[in-house]
């Protein structure tokens, strides 16, 4: 059977990422297992949870990219989520007392950077609004948490969160039509 070749000889396939991904999966699973084992045997603080979260974060951010709607924005918000939770975990399991201040600063910084990028890439707003809304949601969730010890409140943290919310509100007001449209779409509120 000798068919006439009617397809181009393909360019050389780059399998580096695929190979790395395959090795990383095994490597990460082994590391996670060993860490949990050592952590349990040594009966120290639960640092293995932090290791597992880091591995999961690396896996999701480098080796398991979003297949739908991948963009700098969605990736940035995803990375922010993993970082913020990591800070929370380190604070809770290893060295308490600082994340309450640091996390709101991180959220403010993320909101600021995302908003600047959003307005800079304004004509592609349709692709990025959902990521900003998600980030805004994270910030809104953080507010009640920052007030949990009221009236002894961490005012630095609270101020940064309020600043992040203000940026978010400005963004919503300046794009309210798009925001409403986006929310309607994202909640699948159209008739099937």
């Amino acid at each position: 059977m000798n068919p006439k070749i009617v397809y181009p000889i393909p360019i050389r396939q780059n399998t580096v990422y695929r190979t790395l991904r395959a090795y990383a999966r095994i490597f990460f699973l082994v590391i996670a297992f060993v860490c949990v084992l050592v952590n349990l045997l040594t009966r120290t603080k639960l640092w293995s949870i932090i290791v597992i979260w880091v591995l999961l974060g690396i896996w999701r951010l480098i080796f398991s990219l979003k297949l739908v709607e991948f963009s700098i924005f969605s990736h940035g918000v995803r990375a922010g989520f993993y970082i913020v939770v990591l800070l929370g975990l380190i604070d809770y399991f290893l060295a308490p007392g600082w994340a309450e201040t640091v996390i709101p600063i991180c959220m403010f910084a993320m909101m600021l950077v995302m908003s600047i990028l959003y307005f800079a890439l304004y004509d592609r707003k349709d692709r990025h609004l959902a990521s900003i809304l998600l980030l805004g949601l994270y910030v809104l969730v953080a507010v009640p948490y920052s007030l949990h010890s009221w009236p002894i409140t961490n005012w630095i943290a609270f101020s940064f969160l309020i600043a992040a919310i203000l940026i978010f509100i400005v963004l919503i007001i300046s794009n309210w039509r798009d925001v409403l449209y986006e929310i309607r779409n994202r909640l699948n509120m159209h008739e099937r």
Partner: peptide, 15 residues
């Protein structure tokens, strides 16, 4: 259209 994620289903949005 591009495919996007909703809260319950993916959907298509024209561009």
């Amino acid at each position: 259209a591009v495919i996007k994620s909703g809260l319950f289903w993916h959907y298509l949005e024209t561009t």
